[in-house]
Design a protein around this nucleic acid. Structure first.
Lengths: 238, 238
DNA sequence: ACACGTTTTCGATCCTAAGACGAAAACCCT
DNA sequence: AGGGTTTTCGTCTTAGGATCGAAAACGTGT
């Protein structure tokens, strides 16, 4: 019995439960002060008129990572995707009617200073007020938002939502929109700086119409995901 | 073009890249002072004699979660599996020769006080000195160890490796084995207690043969995974 | 021009949690 | 009874985040 659960050899007997595999991505961006998700409206059944995540079938020579990038290229310019990561597998047998399709879900991030051209059936929707979604795509999207929110706390993932240069206030608004609550600009500045994630460019920009001190411009020191090391609580001997 | 990437309707044209799906689990346990993984030795090609993770094909009416639990039941008593979580999807086209099989990998934990009966071809192997493994199973296992190590820091996941009651020293040895470095019993006690993850049972056990103060017995307050809330660095307004 | 409101920025202080260390407690054995 | 052992507890130190307020640098209205 221990050999029943093996990746089978060339001669195969049971193909009945070979399942289709798709990749899906919750692609989010902060626009107009709130977190928006990229959705396209289905034309054909199942679930016509409902809104779905971008994605599609896994090709024969792809990893799930290369597949989701290929599929997203049909929606947005890939260079605008600053971060893509695996979320989870969604595999309820009934998640797609009449078919057995397992989905690998991804989270994708786009910086707020880019406004990709979208196909006609595609639009941004606020994550906190989604339209009627197809399949289990709302669940996937909410899982993605949770992942984003926790990673904003303990990584430098803000770089993937922020423009190359920004003021602390802009960054605060960005974090506030993504997290769903107001954060302090002072603390955001200090916390990210102390971690080495943020640095001043030296430039400043003109004050707003209502006056005020002209803000300084900052940038993220790295565009690669870095985890704050102090979260290793029971630390190894330095 | 926006409709090419949809879970297709009843009439289907392209089934060429329908891929098989398997579930695999890195099941680990602390025994004899180090972290061990459950592996079984393959008899047939591909990769005969190499050691493989438990798992198998995804059935038609299962989620990946129920599937991995079913498959693991063939190896160990399911009630001994105190924690199972999704790790990641492994999908390199060449990861299994002559076949396209996508794997959903899991991490499984077994408390150190249980010694499951194993099939003849199955044995525990130290994770830091693995035998020759089949496919990409070593990579999966190492990813599982990393997940475990980080979760030991910021969750109460120790409950899944520990017996129902234990002394602080036993717990320290457990954490040391899983983390790969010595941790301080004093701090481990205080950190987990302050988080509310640990509580004293009131009982004590006899001192060891070499004397010493009789240690007190502790238990984890919860057997559900709980994340330390202080890791929300930019905290919401309480 | 000057006072005032506004916004950003910086510094000082407080608080909490974790690491390090040593003393005290409670046992063993001789 | 005394010395060795292990556990346990308390205190000190360190570090990062929270809070607050002052200072800087700009607009606007009078």
């Amino acid at each position: 019995m221990s050999n029943t659960n093996t990746p089978p050899g060339p001669r195969e007997r049971d193909t009945s439960h070979i399942t289709g595999h798709e990749v899906l991505a919750g692609v989010v961006q902060v626009r107009q002060g709130s977190l928006k998700a990229l959705l396209w409206q289905r034309a054909r059944p199942p679930h016509p008129n409902r809104w779905a995540l971008p994605g599609g079938r896994l090709g024969p020579d792809e990893t799930v990572e290369s597949s989701i990038r290929r599929q997203l290229a049909e929606k947005v310019d890939v260079r605008e995707l600053t971060h893509v990561e695996q979320l989870a597998v969604f595999s309820s047998p009934g998640r797609v009617p009449d078919k057995r399709i397992v989905a690998t879900a991804f989270l994708g991030l786009i910086p707020c200073d880019t406004d990709p051209e979208l196909p006609d059936d595609t639009a941004w929707h606020p994550v906190e007020a989604l339209p009627e979604t197809a399949f289990d795509h709302e669940e996937i999207l909410l899982a993605g938002r949770e992942r984003l929110r926790s990673k904003l706390s303990y990584t430098n993932i803000g770089f993937a939502l922020a423009p190359p240069k920004f003021t602390v206030s802009e960054l605060r608004d960005l974090y506030s929109a993504a997290l769903g609550y107001r954060v302090s600009a002072t603390n955001l500045q200090r916390v990210l700086s102390r971690r080495g994630a943020l640095e001043a460019t030296g430039e400043t920009v003109a004050a707003g119409p209502s006056g005020g001190r002209p803000p300084a411009l900052f940038r993220f020191t790295s565009r690669d995901l870095q985890i704050t090391d102090r979260f290793a609580v029971l630390r190894p001997p330095a």
